[in-house]
Simulated assay, not measured.
Amino acid sequence: TMHREKLSYRETARQFDISNSRVTAWERIYLEEGADGLYAERRGRKSTGRPPKIKKEEDLIAEVQRLRAVNAYLKKLNALVAERVQQEKKHK
């Protein structure tokens, strides 16, 4: 309608009771993707974050070693706590 009737953003927005920014966004989509682009579902924001970093093999090996050490520590800690609980039950 805007192009066919040679309307400004403001006139188009007023005619359809929408914001100027919505008209601008729809025109950009129309010019980039054609009329079919206006039918695509577009909700929320696009992700602007970096893609996840691909870890190197050395980094993965180091992470596995660290996690194994943490796991071993937690097992020992759990055993110590269980032993202390057992001792406290004996003394009651």
Rank of each mutant, 00 (worst) to 15 (best):
A25K: 10
N71A: 13
K90E: 13
T24C: 12
R14F: 00
A79G: 02
G34A: 06
V70E: 11
K56F: 00
A79H: 08
E11C: 02
D36P: 09
D17I: 01
I18C: 15
R22Q: 14
K90H: 01
T12I: 03
V70I: 14
R68W: 10
P52G: 06
K56H: 06
N71H: 12
A13L: 05
A62M: 11
E33Q: 13
K75Y: 13
R68Q: 13
L74F: 14
E41L: 07
W26S: 03
R14E: 15
S21N: 06
V85N: 09
L31P: 01
W26L: 15
R68C: 12
K56W: 04
V64F: 07
R4T: 10
E63K: 14
K76W: 03
A72L: 11
G44K: 08
A40K: 14
E83R: 13
A35S: 11
E11I: 02
L74G: 09
L60T: 06
A69W: 07
M2V: 06
E33T: 03
M2F: 04
V81I: 13
F16S: 03
Y9W: 05
K76L: 09
T48E: 08
R50A: 13
R4Y: 11
R68K: 14
F16I: 08
L80D: 15
S47D: 15
Y39A: 05
I61L: 15
N71E: 14
L80G: 07
R28H: 13
I61R: 12
A72V: 06
R42L: 07
